Simulated assay, not measured.
Amino acid sequence: MSIRVCVCYGQPTNPADFDEHYEKVHIPLAKAVPGLTDYTWGKVSSMDASDPPYFAIASLYFADEASMKSGLRSEEMKAAAADVANFATGGVTMFVQNEESVLS
């Protein structure tokens, strides 16, 4: 089991600007958060013809709740959080999820 912070980004005003800033600035900031066991992100697409609810989703994984809480309080997370306003013009929805593999 692990714990995940999920960051869902709304449709940005300028997708190309979002991509450039996210890849060149935000990823290095977020990767520095202590306690991360994994960090993934990707663009979202619909399984039908509708518009997806989000533009992209990032997942920050921690081994346990204590590691997550420590990482979220860190100076590195504060820097990453402060950067969000620089590129996430479509808004952000965040939540925490305890994940458990059902295949193992």
Rank of each mutant, 00 (worst) to 15 (best):
A16F: 00
D17H: 04
D17A: 15
F18D: 03
F18C: 04
D19A: 12
E20T: 04
E20I: 01
E20R: 04
H21C: 00
Y22N: 06
E23R: 15
E23K: 09
E23N: 11
E23F: 11
E23G: 15
E23M: 12
K24L: 10
K24S: 11
K24V: 13
V25S: 12
V25I: 04
V25T: 03
H26Q: 15
I27T: 13
I27A: 13
P28R: 11
P28N: 13
P28H: 13
P28M: 07
P28V: 10
L29A: 03
K31R: 09
K31A: 10
K31M: 11
A32D: 03
A32Y: 13
A32R: 14
A32H: 06
A32C: 01
V33D: 04
P34I: 15
P34W: 06
P34T: 12
P34M: 10
P34C: 09
G35R: 08
G35I: 05
G35F: 07
L36Y: 00
L36E: 06
L36C: 02
L36P: 08
T37Q: 09
T37N: 05
D38N: 14
D38H: 09
D38G: 06
D38R: 08
D38E: 03
Y39I: 10
Y39D: 03
Y39R: 05
Y39C: 11
T40R: 15
W41R: 14
W41F: 15
W41G: 13
W41D: 14
G42R: 05
G42N: 12
G42C: 12
G42Y: 04
K43F: 08
V44F: 01
S45V: 14
S45P: 06
S46Q: 05
S46G: 09
S46E: 05
S46F: 03
M47N: 03
M47S: 04
M47D: 00
D48N: 03
D48W: 00
A49N: 05
A49S: 13
S50P: 04
S50D: 09
S50K: 07
D51L: 07
P52Q: 07
P52Y: 12
Y54G: 09
F55T: 02
A56E: 10
A56W: 00
A56Q: 06
I57Y: 03
I57E: 02
I57A: 04
I57V: 12
A58K: 14
S59Y: 07
S59C: 11
L60H: 01
L60E: 02
L60A: 06
L60G: 00
L60I: 05
Y61L: 14
Y61K: 13
Y61P: 00
F62V: 06
A63M: 00
A63G: 11
A63D: 04
D64N: 08
E65P: 14
E65Q: 15
E65G: 02
E65T: 15
A66Q: 14
M68G: 05
M68W: 01
K69R: 15
K69L: 14
K69Y: 00
